[in-house]
């Protein structure tokens, strides 16, 4: 009897040990790809990145040298367009949801933002195509920026709403008690107080859309030359990397790795810096 209990206990303990070991090993397995991916990108990319890469235009097949300068600038411009379209809707929509979104309409809008956030980016690319490319009869930076703008709206809306709601009512009341009109209190006291956190959310959204490829392939398309016209096709880092990666040329593969290294550095730096901030938000 005693013996039986003892062996039962050992069995139970063994089960616990296996369980704990399994979840720990699974966690380690889950992060191995991170090292593999970053490692390969770094090793393959570092040898191909040089000064030319940042300053020159792409060269045709077989010609050595050349870079991605126009694509780097292109990504910047397209992301900027996305911000111009997405941020006002996201931030002001968030303000409305936080201040008066308690009723049915608020629920409906929040639900719409949720649905929008789950839609694959390529589908949003089709939307931008039918809305802008199809009407203008040509690929354009504007269409690409619009697609990325739509993609960032749900994230920005939700962070804005949540962070504005975290601002204590007492601050709003203190502003009102000074005889300041409500709208100014909303903008210059409440939104100003929440701004640090909202900005963090915006930067994380920017990091995410900078790495988007699918919605750009048939909206902003690509361009081998310098172009600053918003109604013309424009190069972007991601589409350029894609074109290089699926080409049959070893030199272009090297450039794809180089582009990936630069892209990963940008995206991960923004993410790391601002994730750190986002965990520290507290208005006490």
């Amino acid at each position: 009897m005693e013996n039986n209990k003892q062996s039962n206990f050992i069995k139970r303990k063994l089960k616990e040990k296996i369980f704990l070991a399994a979840i720990f090993i699974f966690s380690l397995l889950a992060i191995i790809p991170l090292f593999l991916i970053l490692g390969y990108v770094f090793i393959n990319g570092i040898t191909a990145v040089n000064w030319q890469f940042f300053t020159q235009l792409p060269t045709p097949v077989g010609e050595p040298g050349g870079g991605m300068a126009n694509a780097i600038v292109g990504t910047l411009i397209i992301v900027l367009i996305a911000c111009v379209i997405g941020l006002p809707i996201g931030i002001l929509g968030g303000v409305w949801l936080a201040e008066r979104g308690r009723g049915k309409t608020g629920f409906f809008i929040r639900y719409a933002a949720d649905v929008l956030s789950g839609i694959p980016s390529i589908v949003i690319g089709i939307f931008a195509y039918t809305l802008i490319v199809f009407t203008m009869k040509r690929f354009s930076a504007l269409a690409g920026g619009f697609a990325l703008g739509v993609i960032m709206i749900p994230t920005v809306t939700r962070t804005s709403e949540e962070l504005i709601k975290m601002v204590p009512t007492s601050l709003r009341e203190a502003g009102l008690a000074l005889g300041v009109p409500e709208w100014k209190v909303s903008l210059r006291v409440v939104l100003r107080t929440a701004w640090g956190g909202i900005f963090t959310g915006i930067m994380l959204a920017v990091a995410r859309i900078s790495g988007e490829t699918a919605p750009l392939i048939f909206t902003s398309f690509n361009n081998q030359f310098w172009s600053f016209r918003l109604d013309q096709p424009m190069a972007s880092m991601t589409v350029q990397i894609y074109n290089y990666a699926i080409s049959p040329y070893a030199d272009w593969h090297r450039k794809a790795w180089a582009g990936s290294l630069v892209l990963v550095m940008i995206v991960l730096c923004i993410t790391l810096i601002f994730k750190r901030f986002s965990k520290r938000i507290n208005y006490g």
Partner: peptide, 13 residues
């Protein structure tokens, strides 16, 4: 961080 890596880089890898 794994979630932050762009899709295109997964593809290249």
């Amino acid at each position: 961080l794994l979630a932050a890596i762009p899709s295109i880089i997964y593809g290249l890898w």
